[in-house]
Nucleic acid binder design. Structure first.
Length: 771
DNA sequence: GACCTGCTGCGGCATG
């Protein structure tokens, strides 16, 4: 059921009256003059039905209270043993925030409220296990730890849950962590005679139906979907273009001589962007999303130096996942307190979760690749009534001449920025991608976890515990048997089978489960820890070659490495005036959706100049469109430069990657990119042959194709999964795209044929069609 | 040409 009508005041009063008198007292104490729409809807859904509930609303719309006010009303006065409410969050910091918000309310209701994560105090946890009651706020990894280390305690805690509340559901809908939590929820359900009701809290998401499937896989249709009124987004927007100077060397990537770093770096687009940010953001609170940790450090460094040169207090500070908790919290507190103007230059760390108050503007370096993420970032600005959201997008493009690369000439970043804004206006948000590449790893992890929790179990019991509707619904009994056989192989030794058929952990399985990093389903790397005096600054990857005397830019400042403790992996550093930005290991790029690529094609074909472009960005757009026309890309989908062959697919990353893999089968070196794939060092003839083979693909060729795909191991425990099984899962994941390959190849062949006749007309046309 | 997230149990000690 969808419900998004604005609620009447009579309805709001009715909802208020249904709350426990102590909850109403608490509301009055807060000084609230009315309940928000989403809270009224939440009260009705929780107290007037037995259904699961999904609450989707923008940040700061009062989602937490929409769930907790009625839930606490419902469980107040309950006195059976066991927790009544389990709240699950992806972040420890969010748990601490929620704890502060709920502390007083729970005290009024005489309900114990316990934070349960790795950094939370132990005393209250011990007390809770002794007398399980009330509400626990927990992370998925702490649930995992409870199940495998203290299964009896877990059973006592979870045997009588009335509600499971999952915060930031959208953050769990893709990726290994979402599979993990979904499996844990299923296992927790089995502890109780009656499964707890589930309540999901989420930001505005594209596909509420998919979220309902995640929340209650066995009965998604019975999930009540609540959405707050979506008011039109009042947005002040600018896309600013910056030309990267061609003649100047790129920003220093390698180790320079020590004295070289004392000089100012060469002028580059990022410096010009820093100049603009410095001039426009000082004096207020803002977020600048840099896109990578490297860019964040470079920008923070530039901005600090400008403050020093201007002899004014610095207001710009970096924030990313490698910075120490202390530094990050200092900045978060400074933003939230609002006593000093502050701009955080961040990666996606400040995109969700912790309360940092409202900021005046959001800046984004580089064009967005995800509308979900852009929307979430915009949610951080203009939240006070009547204030518009302010967004600045800074795009950088390379200088072009007749030898420039095709992609530079097409001004792809500028066009993608315009396309993203058009999709923002159309309210498009990407749906989650199912199923996740980490499926096999998650299944193996949960098999080991169930065997540990139960001290051994028969295979059919484990399958029953994990299979069926839920994260592993697509896993067949024979898939499962193959996974178990792989885990029992001598070289893995993860599990063993007793003569009576019971499965138990083997020596290898014991080692894996005993390791401290078993609790999380995502991987983590070993890193150097940087410490200045006694102050922890954060970490950098071990892949950075470190010698004493090395200079490092980190945490927005410059440091000299004084001492290295190889054993403890600690670098003692002191302040210095020079520095080089460290390497942060990159894994992949953020995937763009089909719809974004399709919208880019429309932007190329259109001729309007959006008013939100500055002069340089408008020039980039005009140049990109001119190149698009000159190359005939309105109709052509292939382009043979004589050295490379470009195939324009106008699809998202998923399809472009599969298409590149298909071409690779025929010995063609194909690189996927934003608009399609580029086949390197190939003749048109080679590519035509390859396309002909792809055009002949039939549905049942997928299996043969899958057998030859490279790089199917991608997740944490994939090394312990039989490769044929990984391949089978890969094939199923791509089955939906498979049917698109042959028609695409056929249409590309048509484009080749038209181009050939066109080139024939121009008898002496140059083979080199680069611009 | 990406980003983020999490973590036991126990013994021993100091402290209120």
């Amino acid at each position: 059921m969808n419900s998004s009508a604005s609620v009447s005041s009579a309805r709001a009063a009715g909802a208020y009256d249904r709350l426990d008198p102590r909850v109403r007292f608490w509301i009055r104490e807060q000084g609230w003059d009315r309940l928000r729409d989403i809270q009224v809807q939440g009260i009705e859904a929780v107290l007037e039905s037995e259904a699961d509930v999904l609450v989707a609303a923008a940040t700061a719309a009062g989602k937490t209270e929409a769930a907790f006010l009625p839930v606490l009303t419902h469980v107040a006065g309950r006195d059976d043993s066991g927790l009544a409410v389990l709240y699950i969050s992806p972040l420890k910091a969010l748990i601490n925030d929620q704890f502060r918000r709920l502390e007083q309310l729970c005290e009024l209701l005489e309900l114990p409220l316990v934070r349960w994560h790795g950094d939370a105090p132990r005393g209250p946890k011990t007390k809770l296990v002794a007398k399980p009651r009330g509400v626990a706020l927990i992370t998925p990894e702490s649930i995992e730890a409870l199940l495998i280390r203290r299964p009896a305690d877990a059973r006592r805690l979870f045997c009588a849950l009335d509600f499971v509340i999952v915060d930031e559901v959208h953050a769990f809908m893709t990726g290994p962590r979402g599979l993990h939590l979904a499996s844990l929820l299923k296992r927790i359900d089995a502890f109780a005679p009656r499964p707890a009701r589930r309540i999901g809290l989420s930001a505005t998401i594209g596909d509420l139906g998919a979220a309902a499937v995640w929340l209650r896989p066995s009965e998604p249709a019975r999930v009540r979907l609540l959405q707050s009124d979506v008011t039109g987004l009042d947005l002040q927007l600018q896309i600013r273009g910056y030309l990267e100077p061609k003649a100047v060397a790129p920003v220093q990537q390698t180790e320079p001589a020590e004295d070289a770093v004392l000089q100012r770096e060469p002028a580059c687009a990022l410096e010009a962007i820093a100049e603009h940010l410095f001039a426009n953001l000082r004096g207020s609170n803002n977020l600048v999303f840099g896109g990578s940790r490297r860019t964040v450090e470079a920008l923070a460094d530039q901005l600090r130096r400008r403050a020093e040169e201007a002899e004014v207090p610095n207001e710009f500070f970096p924030h990313h996942g490698n910075l120490s908790k202390e530094l990050r919290e200092e900045l978060e507190t400074r933003l939230k307190d609002g006593l000093l103007p502050t701009t955080a230059v961040c990666t996606s760390t400040l995109e969700l979760g912790v309360d940092i108050g409202s900021v005046q503007s959001v800046a984004q370096i580089g064009a967005p690749r995800s509308l979900a993420s852009l929307r979430q970032r915009l949610g951080r600005t203009g939240r006070r009534l009547g204030m518009p959201a302010v967004l600045r997008i800074y795009v950088r493009e390379g200088a072009c001449d007749e030898r420039s690369d095709l992609m530079d000439a097409l001004r792809v970043d500028t066009v993608r920025a315009v396309a993203a804004i058009r999709l923002l206006a159309a309210r498009f948000v990407e749906p989650p991608a199912f199923p996740d590449p980490a499926l096999a790893t998650a299944l193996l992890h949960q098999v080991l976890s169930v065997l540990t929790e139960r001290g051994g179990a028969r295979a059919d019991a484990v399958y029953q515990a994990l299979g069926g509707p839920g994260p592993f619904a697509s896993v067949t009994p024979s898939d499962f048997a193959e996974l178990l056989r792989g885990a029992a192989r001598a070289e893995s030794g993860l599990i063993e089978q007793a003569p009576d058929g019971t499965l138990m952990l083997g020596a290898g399985g014991e080692r894996l489960v005993q390791a401290r990093d078993f609790y999380a389903l995502f991987e983590s790397a070993d890193e150097w820890r940087l410490i200045a005096g006694t102050r922890p600054l954060g970490t950098i990857p071990l892949s950075n070659a470190i010698v004493p005397g090395k200079l490092v830019v980190f945490a927005g400042r410059r440091w000299l490495v004084e001492e290295i403790d190889e054993q403890a992996r600690v670098l003692q550093v002191s302040a210095h005036h020079g520095g080089v930005i460290p390497k942060f290991d990159r894994l992949s790029v953020e995937a763009a959706h089909d719809r974004l690529a399709a919208e880019m094609r429309l932007v190329y074909a259109a001729d309007d100049v959006p008013p939100y472009l500055d002069r340089q960005a408008a020039a980039f757009l005009a140049e990109g469109r001119a190149a698009h026309r000159r190359l005939g890309l309105q109709t052509a989908t292939s382009l043979d430069t004589g050295r490379d062959v470009h195939l324009f697919l106008w699809r998202g990353d998923a399809l472009c990657h599969v298409f590149a893999a298909a071409l690779a089968l025929f010995g063609l070196q194909a690189e996927p990119h934003d608009l399609g794939v580029t086949v390197r060092w190939a003749t048109g003839e080679d590519v035509r042959t390859g396309l002909g083979r792809i055009a002949a693909f039939r549905a049942d060729d997928l299996d043969r194709f899958t057998e030859q795909v490279q790089g199917v191991q991608s997740a944490k425990f994939d090394a312990h999964v039989p490769e044929p099984l990984l391949r089978r899962f890969w094939g199923r994941r791509h089955a939906r795209l498979w049917g698109d390959l042959a028609p695409l190849a056929t249409s590309l062949l048509g484009s080749f044929a038209r181009q050939a006749s066109h080139n024939g007309d121009r008898a002496h046309a140059s083979a080199d069609q680069r611009l």
